[in-house]
């Protein structure tokens, strides 16, 4: 039985990865936007600003990495709304593979997309001469995996409970941008006003950004264990509500 389910999960994952490579526009768009941030925003501000002794462009790099994963993952999940409109998802939803595993397959597809994108960014990191050690690289991958799994699950959750395409805008404004802005991706979180500090503490991405600053630049505030642990908790929660939403789909 378990073998069969793995095969079903693999089928869904494989489809997602194929689609990712075949939809060139999606791929190009997802690579261009982090480049703009790094070379437009990072280099622009970096010309006058340095934080914690490093050039701003380098400082902001882990934040841009997290942002890329965030946007790719959440919007990947939200895409389910579109799939549902086209009767496309129905084929999967009425197959004997249980909804929970459909969710897992989809989630792994999103994680893969985010991984592929982050590879592009790692190459840029080399160009920018960011001092990444092999151990730091592996640790970064763990962080990216957890972040992508969490964010894809959140996206899939909203994709499953919302039905109109306008929801994209809502989720973008009320979920994606706040998650990004309050994560400290663009600034250090140590000297913030207390209301902002509270928000950053409950934002899972804060820990992702901090962990990557640790693994890539060696300037993390919390220990890697703490960051990874908190991320893992968020991840489990997100997977929980996401698969719950998938199982519930259709009961309305």
């Amino acid at each position: 039985m378990v073998m069969n389910e793995l095969e079903g999960i693999y089928a869904i994952w494989l489809r997602e990865v194929k689609i990712y490579f075949r939809e060139k526009e999606r791929f190009v768009a997802s690579v261009v936007s982090p480049l703009l941030w790094i070379f437009g925003f990072g280099a622009g501000l970096g010309a006058t600003v340095a934080i914690a002794g490093v050039n701003y462009q380098t400082y902001v790099f882990p934040g841009i990495m997290v942002m890329t994963v965030l946007f790719t993952s959440v919007f990947y999940g939200l895409y389910v709304i579109w799939d549902r409109k086209l009767d496309f998802l129905k084929e999967v939803m009425v197959s004997p593979l249980s909804r929970r595993w459909v969710f897992v397959g989809k989630m792994l597809g999103g994680v893969s997309d985010a991984f592929i994108q982050s590879m592009v960014l790692f190459i840029i990191a080399l160009v920018l001469q960011i001092p990444l050690t092999p151990a730091g690289f592996v640790a970064s991958l763990v962080v990216i995996f957890l972040t992508a799994a969490c964010m894809t699950s959140i996206g899939l959750f909203f994709g499953a409970i919302l039905s109109s395409m306008e929801s994209f805008q809502l989720v973008s404004n009320f979920v994606v941008w706040p998650l990004f802005l309050f994560s400290g991706a663009l600034f250090p979180i140590s000297n913030l006003p207390s209301w902002l500090q509270v928000l950053t503490f409950i934002d899972p991405l804060t820990y992702a950004v901090d962990a990557l600053r640790g693994t890539m630049l060696g300037t993390g505030v919390f220990s890697f264990g703490l960051d990874a642990g908190v991320l893992m908790v968020f991840c489990v929660l997100a997977i929980g509500i996401g698969s719950w939403a998938f199982e519930r789909m259709g009961k309305l």
Partner: peptide, 27 residues
């Protein structure tokens, strides 16, 4: 087995890939 009202085959896959995915989903 089902044929839905709206098209539900995957445009970005080949015909065979669509069938392969289905076969895997149905174990």
């Amino acid at each position: 087995g089902i044929v839905f009202q709206e098209p539900s085959v995957d445009d970005l896959l080949t015909g065979r890939e669509n069938l392969e995915m289905h076969a895997k989903l149905y174990c």
